[in-house]
């Protein structure tokens, strides 16, 4: 009797313990309870925050990857296309040579300053080819890209002031944007700043620019009307600086004599017509008696 009573007590105690364990287990898998605990601890917010961070990082990375496929902006396109053309034309333009130091930096900057072109940057490249005698190439609004031929300036024994005035003419042409307009590819507007992720980039416009520069040099050139405009602008800029104005007239006279007397430079007038007319346009108008 005693034994069975002890057995009952022990068994019921074990049974009670088992129930408690199951209850505990139930507590653990009670998701609502877990959720409440997590909510209470702020862990759910933490998970949400982490998820948001991960998604933000993924978005940023996707944007960064997309940005790698950008077509250059208009401002970056022209310097890049112009430099590429100069690289391709290196064997023709012969700019990789040991050139004399003309001390142009100071002289050209002084001329630009005198005519009020402040805060502008410039880059000048000397060529060992006889043509083009000089040329302004599209770059950016704040920077001018200018070329001049050493054989051309040497044939006339130009001073650094005269070379600077020659380059000033090209600055005015660049400001008019004539060569840029001529060389501007038809589809450029749709390409600049566009994204080509997942597509093959369209380089046709990029290569077309160089072909247009060459076509302009060999075939098109500046018109008489454009030359007249530039000459008048030079006159307006220089007339209050007699030393510069006289140097400009002297320069045009030298070019006129060179292109008429030296067959090597005879094609100059196809690009810049005509030094003789330019001198006439500069002459003071005769007063009617």
């Amino acid at each position: 009797m005693m034994f069975s009573w002890i057995f009952y007590v022990v068994f019921s105690a074990i049974a009670q313990d088992t129930t408690l364990a199951q209850e505990k287990e139930l507590d653990v898998v009670d998701f609502q309870h877990v959720k409440d605990v997590l909510k209470k601890d702020g862990l759910m917010q933490e998970v949400q925050k982490k998820k948001k961070e991960v998604s933000q990082i993924r978005e940023i990375r996707a944007e960064e990857e997309k940005a790698r496929y950008l077509w250059p902006s208009e401002d970056d396109f022209w310097p890049l296309a112009t430099e590429y053309w100069l690289v391709k034309e290196a064997p023709l333009l012969l700019w990789d040579f040991d050139r004399p130091d003309y001390g142009l930096e100071g002289s050209f900057a002084t001329v630009l300053k005198t005519v009020g072109m402040l805060q502008k940057r410039y880059r000048i490249l000397a060529l060992n080819a006889p043509a083009p005698g000089h040329l302004g190439l599209p770059w950016s609004d704040q920077e001018f890209c200018l070329l001049f031929s050493v054989p051309f300036v040497r044939a006339m024994d130009l001073s650094k002031l005269e070379i600077s005035l020659l380059l000033l003419e090209d600055v005015l042409r660049l400001q008019e944007g004539w060569l840029k307009d001529f060389a501007r590819p038809a589809n450029l507007k749709t390409l600049v700043g566009s994204n080509f992720q997942g597509k093959k980039p369209d380089y046709s416009a990029f290569y077309e620019v160089g072909k247009s520069y060459r076509k302009f040099l060999n075939e098109k050139g500046y018109s008489f009307q454009q030359q007249f405009q530039i000459t008048k602008k030079m006159n307006d800029l220089l007339k209050s600086h007699p030393d510069l104005w006289n140097a400009y007239v002297r320069l045009l006279g030298k070019i006129d004599r060179l292109v008429k007397g030296n067959r090597q430079f005879a094609d100059y007038v196809k690009l810049y017509p005509s030094p003789e007319m330019q001198i006439r346009w500069l002459a003071p108008e005769e007063k009617v008696p």
Binding site: R68, L86, A90, K113, M117, R123, I124, L125, P201, Y203
Partner: peptide
């Protein structure tokens, strides 16, 4: 990607580098 796509050959890389040795650059202050 645009620059890579130009696939510049050795001569082009060389001359592009040389070009930057030859520029005379300045600014009007």
């Amino acid at each position: 990607k645009f620059f890579d796509g130009l696939s510049l050959d050795l001569a082009e890389l060389y001359y592009w580098g040389r070009l930057h040795d030859h520029w005379t650059e300045g600014q009007v202050k």
